[in-house]
Design a protein around this nucleic acid. Structure first.
Lengths: 173, 173
DNA sequence: TGAAGCATGTAATTTGTTACATGATTGG
DNA sequence: CCAATCATGTAACAAATTACATGCTTCA
């Protein structure tokens, strides 16, 4: 049981399991879909990461004896504690924008062109978020709700930004 | 000269070289610093990626005969074309928020606590951007300027978001 | 003149992605 | 009953991070 470094994906797995009691990688994948706008993970990582966490004692692992021999994971005490510590501890980590459209702009792509595309993409995403909110499953936990609010706010900002750029009359800075 | 897939880092290298004519990895690292709020890259990637690009014909590579035997890279015709095509082409790629603070919130961290920290971090970053703008090197290219505007807008949004959460009186959703 | 710190780079390790593969299910 | 699609997983590959290492300046 060697020590490993816990990464954001580790905490995603731990966090999802704290909601589910136990789950197979496939179930984790399904759960992770709800998180994909905030932090997407490839389905293959949901096979590797739980195995890694199990080996280090954060999860228990139990395998079907027959058929698919699926593995089911659950939090151990150590896993629950690690999650709690992370939730309670400070985060100094910082997001970069890392926006592909902005990167192009940075290196000299034509603003109007990029802006037109990006504005459209972000309007779509914004609309999607808004229907979420409108539908508003009221039993939903607070965390996802707050994250959605942040997503909304940023999408609004993106739409503002790109639309302004789009409408700008060429090169007048 | 095998074909490779061009990733965002590839374009960062190509883009930086389009500004510099030629550069060593170390010089690339220095140039990349200006980009770090938008898209940070580790210095070691600036050794590996140019080598990869050179092998695929996007860059020329020339090595010092003596001393450190530093390598100097420059765009080839193929490299210039690839960059131009990327700049002109569409981007459907999308940014995720991928914010560590938000991730914690999602999984149930205490909103006030996270918000207090994050608000502080973002206020600092915002202030930093504002001094950039105030100092305003006027010869700066348009791309970086526009990217900075986006950065500012999003930092303002983050500050609004976290401060609102911070001041919220507990659990009243 | 030697210690601190920047410049410069390679290697090992860890992560993440893509490609592939096969079993199960179900609507037509 | 068969084609499509979803479920489930592994393996190969590519990329990114960390650790390490050493040469060079500079200034006390």
């Amino acid at each position: 049981m060697q020590e490993i470094r816990l990464t954001p994906i580790s905490f995603i797995v731990l966090g999802l399991l704290s909601w589910a009691e136990k789950a197979t990688p496939y179930e984790l994948k399904r759960m992770a879909a709800s998180l994909s706008d905030l932090w997407s993970v490839q389905h293959t990582q949901l096979y590797g990461e739980p195995a890694r966490l199990a080996k280090a004692g954060y999860l228990s692992e139990q395998q079907e004896a027959t058929g698919r021999r699926r593995k089911t994971y659950a939090l151990t005490k150590k896993g629950r504690e690690a999650l709690a510590a992370w939730l309670a501890g400070p985060t100094s980590a910082f997001t970069e924008l890392r926006d592909p459209g902005l990167l192009k702009l940075y290196f000299g792509a034509d603003p109007q062109t990029v802006a037109a595309e990006q504005a459209e993409l972000h309007r779509r995403k914004l609309a999607e978020y808004e229907t979420f909110v409108a539908r508003g499953s009221p039993e939903e936990a607070e965390g996802p709700f707050l994250a959605l609010q942040a997503g909304l706010a940023h999408e609004r900002e993106w739409v503002r930004y790109w639309e302004k750029l789009e409408k700008r009359k060429t090169e007048s800075r």
